[in-house]
Design a binder for these strands. Sequence first.
DNA 1: TGTGTCACG
DNA 2: ACGTACGTGACACAA
Length: 722
Amino acid sequence: MQLRLKLSGNDNEKETTAKQRVKQASERKAAANESMSDAWQRILSMKTSDTDQAKLLEVKQAMASGKVGRNPADVQKRFSKAEALRLFKDLAESQREEKLAELVAGTPENYVLVSTRADIDALIADFKTADLVGLDCETFGEDNGALDPWRGNMAGFSVSTRQRHYYVPLNHEETPEGLIGVDIIGLLKPHLERVKTVMHNAPFDCKWFYVKYGVNLVDNLHADTRIMAMAFDENRSHRLKDLITDWLKIPSDNFDQLFPNTQFNKIPLDVALPYAAGDTEKTLMLYDWISQFYSKSDDLKQIQRLVFEIEMPVCRQFIWSDIHGIRFDVEEAHKLDEKLAKEEAELVAEITDMFGEEINLNSPIQLKKKLFIDLKLPDLEKGSTGVKALKKIKNAHPVISKMLEYREVGKLRQAFTQKLPKEVKSDGMIHPWHNTLGAATGRFTCSNPNTQQIPAKRPEIRNLFLSTNEDRILVSMDYSQIELRVLAHLANEKELIKAFKEGLDIHSMTAAMISAGKFSYEDIEKDKETQGSPQQKFRKQAKVVNFGIVYGMSAAGLSNTLEITKEEAQEIIDNYFKGYPGIKRYMDEQKRLARKQGYVTDLFGRKRRLNSDYRSKDRFQHFRADRMAGNFPVQASAGSILKKAVVDLQPVLLQTNSMILLQAHDEIIYDCPKNISLEELNLIRETMENAVKLVIPLRCDLELNPKRWLEKVDEKEWFDAI
DNA sequence: TGTGTCACG
DNA sequence: ACGTACGTGACACAA
């Protein structure tokens, strides 16, 4: 076990100039006159970043205790900060080697490196008696391929039963002789697919096993400790290492510190064993640690139900979604990108012309200088060059509207037409990573790529997403006004409930409310499409208010977005709350609860813990927490309703031969057979609508996109033709 | 690595 | 003294 690190280049080999010789001579003189403690005092009093300062102090201590010493070649020179930092590297390296040696020497008796056929049999025997097995795979690959099962490779995986902890090497540079020619996966597959497992960040391991080896770990996945931890405390780091250190008080090794810039397949097996098997042992321990709390209170029992009845099934469902992926039209994407590139180039030329010089239009610093100093345009947003700020000064100079166009085109290219084709894997599909419990509110997040932020206003990007094949169609179903419906239910706001029950246009309803008697609901409805009418203006404002109120918007905030005075904004808010007194009551109650209990909950018992925010000395932080307290139950309940729907949908998906491909908070994109019947689609729709019983009904809108996302086909025409 | 900007619900 | 709309992820720039 020897890991070698590249040593930095040898200074002596460098050519010495006359100037350097003079400098060295004076340094030698200085060095002769300066004691080490003086040198340290000098160095430590220099202006240094916090991390460097910490490093320097560590070096000073290590030198004092003789752990590290000056390089003989440097002794003649004056001791410098640079030399001290070089010593830190040496120190870190020797500590690392020490640590690795310790790790290997301290490998527990019940840790087994699987290196023979007999070891595999022992593992299988343990599988047969294990109630729960911890599992974790180690991966490697060029260019972040270690995070991508469609590009990288699995070095091996670890398995923990409660008795023993195994590391199974699959693709290490070092192959145990006893495993040459042995079909390890083939032997273990039936057992891996049968045991109940627990993993930390299960989607990662499940995807690797399925994509690389066709091993299905999804169906028997019992628990994901990352999800358990998130439900237990949404406000902290959920890395296994951090959870183990903070909750179980067990120190844990950090891979990057132990193996800087090293791929896992290059790691000697005697080190890989304690490191990898350590992780699965800790995963099991973390599982047990969290589990013991579930019986401690009703709240925690509710959290347990949330995890095992909602979160885990949803997690499993979306692992399949991501593995399946969504087809993407690379060719059309390139064409679109070329078209946009032309537009962009023209805009850049025009803008450069108007600016009189070439600047980087993507640099806020350069743009700020150009607009507010060179062109002396009014700076109304504290130096911001964001869309909002630019729109305000649109009339001050013709270049502004060009800038806005450039921004739009540039964004579309860099974030979508340039980026998305790179995400297409060898199977022609985009495989996003849905993190089913990614947001503190319980909502999903999505990455690589984030399909939740594909432009919705311009159809051309969504149009690049295709149905899986000729026999399948895309279907999208989105909950109509789910957050406002949830708010009406939670707040028990009679007017809002009535409006939803009668199927009224909710924004028009609010418009009538904030017009304070000037217009009735009918007045607004009659003229809401009339360009420039006060009715239309009120409805537009009402839409902003309906959303804003859920976010805990203040008069200042509303005046900003509506570009009205604070007084006018306050009046709108007052009218809103006068019209919907239940909402005011509800929001105040949530704040009160949050301040009293330190948390608020959603319809499913999901919690948002805000006590640390309220402990802050910063009063702004308290107001922020108040807004979160008001917003959380609404956002979280809506999100949880969708998750409950996903659980309820499982038999329906089987029955209708359908798949879920994507999710965007209040919307699900399905892959369905081309010959799916209207009755079957309605079954899916009704399952979503009936996920929970609220005082008002939930409604889902259905859209058929047979070939391309957002390319709508009329329902009636489609079924008549089929 | 942090900041600004902007895409989504 | 000030902040003044919730929740995200991705990119380019600047340090």
